[in-house]
């Protein structure tokens, strides 16, 4: 992976390159001598630090999707809440690494909470006794503030989330809610949490979320390639927003038509398990938006039954 500082000269060969400090673009760069000396070419020291800190976390579940707006955040939210309510004596963390568009503070009903710095690091926001939440949303002055950051600054934030948040003594599950795409945030989180040693179980697993439309499926295919490339094991594919039940006439229709088979076909094609299909329930979606704990307020919704079956499948796989 080629590493370039954000303020590097235009044609910087990258600090890890053989030409570092020697290329014509390096002339005049304040770091030229450091790069040219070639001395500290070792791996990023923070990787070990984060890994040590995270080694106690049994399962790290990445909720991924190449496409935006398919329900990653809603699914992560419900997954974290279900895990916390199923295992009252286990600790669950939800980490929102969507730096530019954090949704979890709103969905967890923790919009105006703030995180505090203590001796052992940042103290996350506890939504339930055993459910901790961390998001950049808690660090912004106002929810309208834009985070206009390039990659390296986002990476730094994620490293801090992983190494400097006081998650408590033992964490059993960490659910990571990610932004769309296959870029900085994903690479950073994967480089910290996925083990490079073959055979070693790092506990990192990915769940791919898609909607049935062909555009979303195309992006999720790319995400599956990403997982393969970084060595992140995939638990399976969740198809969200599959059917829509009209609240008026109760007839089911497809808002996002399955042009070519939807999530099930995708999982077949990519040889990944299909975890299930979640119907779209507008009332539930709105309740999630408002930060309600829908597991207790709307327990009889068919959407939650589908989620519950998916959580079963995820648990048996990890």
């Amino acid at each position: 992976m080629e590493e370039k500082p954000s303020d590097a000269p235009e044609h910087c060969p990258g600090t890890q390159s053989d030409n570092a400090g020697k290329a014509s673009a390096c002339a005049g760069c304040p770091n030229q001598t450091i790069c040219a000396s070639g001395a500290p070419r070792g791996p990023d020291p923070s990787v070990e630090l984060v890994r040590a800190r995270m080694s106690g976390v049994r399962s790290k579940l990445f909720v991924l999707s190449g496409k935006g707006g398919v329900g990653k955040s809603t699914f992560s939210n419900l997954l974290a809440r279900s895990l916390a309510s199923r295992f009252p004596d286990k600790n669950v963390a939800l980490l929102d690494i969507d730096i530019c568009g954090p949704s979890q503070p709103r969905m967890m009903g923790a919009l105006n909470e703030q995180v505090h710095q203590s001796g052992s690091g940042w103290c996350p926001v506890y939504v339930e006794e055993n459910l901790a939440l961390m998001s950049i949303g808690f660090l912004l002055g106002s929810s309208d503030d834009a985070v206009i950051w390039r990659g390296p600054r986002k990476n730094n934030m994620i490293r801090q989330f992983l190494s400097e948040v006081d998650w408590g003594d033992s964490l059993d599950f960490m659910v990571l809610d990610t932004p769309p795409g296959t870029s900085d945030e994903h690479l950073s989180a994967a480089s910290y949490l996925v083990s490079k040693t073959p055979g070693e179980d790092d506990g990192a697993r990915a769940i791919l979320v898609t909607s049935p439309s062909e555009v979303a499926i195309a992006d999720v295919r790319r995400e599956a390639t990403f997982c393969k490339r970084v060595g992140l094991k995939v638990v399976g594919v969740v198809e969200n927003m599959a059917a829509f039940v009209c609240p008026h006439c109760k007839v089911t229709s497809e808002i996002f038509p399955r042009d070519r088979g939807g999530g099930e076909k995708l999982s077949e094609e990519m040889e990944l398990p299909f975890l299930g299909s979640v119907p779209l329930d507008p009332v539930l979606a709105r309740a999630c938006d408002e930060g309600q704990d829908v597991l207790s307020t709307m327990a009889d919704s068919p959407t939650l039954a589908a989620i519950s079956a998916i959580v079963d499948r995820i648990l048996s796989a990890v």
Binding site: K4, G151, R221
Partner: peptide
């Protein structure tokens, strides 16, 4: 091909 993903960090995208 359609499976190919672009796994790039910021500077390369820029």
């Amino acid at each position: 091909d359609k499976n190919e993903s672009v796994i790039w960090r910021g500077p390369k995208k820029t």
